[in-house]
Simulated scan of single mutants.
Amino acid sequence: MSSTVGIVVTDTYRPGDGDNDTAPLIAALSALDIAAEPVIWHAWEPRSDAGYDLLVLRSPWDYSEREAEFRAWLARAADAVPVLNPPALVEWNLDKLYLQDLQRLGVEVVPTQWVTSPAELAAALSSHGGDWVVLKPSVSAGALNTGLMRANSAEAEELGRQILTLGRTVMVQPEVPELSEGLEKALYFFDGEFTHAISKGALLERGGGFRGGSYQENPQLVTAAETERAFGAKVLDAVARATGQPLPLYGRIDIVTSGRWGTVLLEAELFEPALNLHRAPAAAAVLARAIARQL
């Protein structure tokens, strides 16, 4: 095998237990005569003689709890080895404030109030009366510190203040009924090519916490209408215009088509999304070929 790729994970990586992508991706790369292995990001110190021709960020899912450490590691890694998706794109994508950039470029985004102080929090919650709202930090993974609560509840104010105490911007969004019905779709694009769509079901329990008591996705293959695929491509085009970066190696575009707002963007996940390759095995080969082209 002439090339070696490091697949960047974290120390909670377990094949088939949460990370369902790394093992099938390594197998698909092996079929192309490309060696690959998991690299635990915070246990590996980048160096020029690392032996890798490319690092592919896959599941560094603890980045939000070690953000400064991860940013510093990513910069060092990029000095030693090419990294995909590119660190400049990752830096932009780390904080969901990027949604503001995309909105300015014409991408429809779920309505969001951006809160940076207790006074702004009180005003934002008050504007929703007693309606259900979602509160979440602008930097987070795995729906950490995220809740679906009545806007006028003590729990909503407490969660908002907790997020502010962590030094994060609070995102306040109205409940989208279709999200609560589990109609969110994740659209996957590898090197610009649409491969599959996943529905992971509703996650948040009204009143706070997760349905079933813990974060538990139930990814299932679903179809994506041509209009939804076109929306995903539109988002990727806006990402390129906003960042000046080339087309991402991989991207997951999370959308919901709602009766009130039409099709809107929830997130553009460009560096650590679950790809659900175990649900779409053929997509692993598409991603592997895209990596081979980068080599």
Results as ranks from 00 to 15, higher is better:
93 N>Y: 14
94 L>K: 02
94 L>Q: 14
95 D>F: 00
96 K>T: 03
97 L>Y: 03
97 L>R: 15
98 Y>P: 05
98 Y>G: 05
100 Q>W: 01
103 Q>R: 15
104 R>Q: 15
105 L>W: 10
106 G>E: 10
108 E>H: 12
108 E>K: 13
110 V>C: 03
111 P>F: 00
111 P>E: 01
112 T>A: 02
113 Q>K: 07
115 V>A: 01
116 T>E: 12
119 A>M: 06
120 E>M: 13
121 L>R: 00
121 L>W: 06
121 L>V: 08
122 A>E: 15
123 A>Y: 08
124 A>I: 11
125 L>C: 11
126 S>T: 15
126 S>R: 08
127 S>W: 12
128 H>K: 10
128 H>F: 15
128 H>T: 07
128 H>W: 15
128 H>L: 07
129 G>T: 12
130 G>V: 09
130 G>Q: 11
131 D>E: 13
131 D>C: 03
131 D>V: 10
133 V>E: 04
133 V>D: 03
134 V>I: 14
135 L>K: 03
135 L>N: 01
136 K>A: 06
136 K>M: 04
139 V>T: 10
139 V>E: 11
139 V>D: 02
139 V>K: 13
139 V>S: 08
140 S>L: 00
140 S>E: 02
141 A>F: 10
141 A>I: 05
142 G>L: 06
142 G>P: 09
145 N>A: 09
145 N>S: 08
145 N>Y: 12
145 N>F: 08
146 T>C: 03
146 T>M: 02
146 T>F: 02
148 L>Y: 06
148 L>Q: 03
148 L>P: 00
148 L>N: 02
148 L>K: 14
149 M>Q: 11
149 M>G: 00
150 R>D: 10
151 A>Q: 10
151 A>D: 07
152 N>R: 02
153 S>C: 04
153 S>A: 09
154 A>N: 07
154 A>S: 14
156 A>K: 05
157 E>T: 15
157 E>M: 12
161 R>K: 11
161 R>Y: 06
162 Q>A: 14
163 I>Y: 10
165 T>L: 13
165 T>E: 15
166 L>N: 04
166 L>K: 11
167 G>R: 01
167 G>Y: 03
167 G>D: 12
167 G>E: 10
169 T>E: 00
170 V>P: 11
170 V>G: 11
171 M>P: 02
171 M>I: 07
